[in-house]
């Protein structure tokens, strides 16, 4: 069942969803860059990049490691208010405290 929500939760949910969307967009850019490089400059992908690895291997492994890193960062950012609800309110003070239903909406 859906849980009980309070206005404070709402604010925090919005904040989380904004963080989530920003991180998704950032990752999409990195991923999109990878796909476009593979498509249009496959020879560049064979060139040496770092640690003796070619660009394809380094970028590919990098995409996996960045995903894990992003996940941990996101979890860290999400953790704050469950320990201290008021801190969350303060942290997202710039966002208006809206009525129930706001969580459905666009950022």
């Amino acid at each position: 069942m859906a849980q009980q929500t309070t206005p404070m939760d709402e604010v925090f949910e919005r904040r989380k969803s904004i963080i989530g969307i920003r991180m998704t967009i950032l990752y999409s850019v990195v991923y999109g860059g990878f796909v476009l490089l593979s498509v249009f400059q496959p020879t560049w992908m064979g060139a040496r990049a770092v640690l003796g690895l070619n660009l394809a291997v380094a970028y590919g492994l990098g995409l996996i490691l960045i995903a894990i890193l992003f996940a941990l960062i996101y979890n860290h950012l999400c953790r704050v208010p469950s320990n201290a609800q008021s801190a969350a309110g303060a942290a997202s003070g710039s966002l208006p405290v809206t009525n129930a239903g706001a969580g459905d909406q666009q950022e």
């Binding site: 969803s17 998704t24 990878f34 992908m45 291997v57 590919g60 995409l63 995903a67 996940a71 969580g103």
Partner: peptide, 25 residues
């Protein structure tokens, strides 16, 4: 060679969308 690994990358990258956008809502 590397083309097989492209599947690995794509299969994992999708989880970013799952985590950041879909999971909690």
């Amino acid at each position: 060679g590397y083309d097989g690994f492209l599947y690995s990358i794509g299969f994992l990258a999708g989880w970013i969308v799952a985590l950041f956008v879909i999971a909690e809502p």
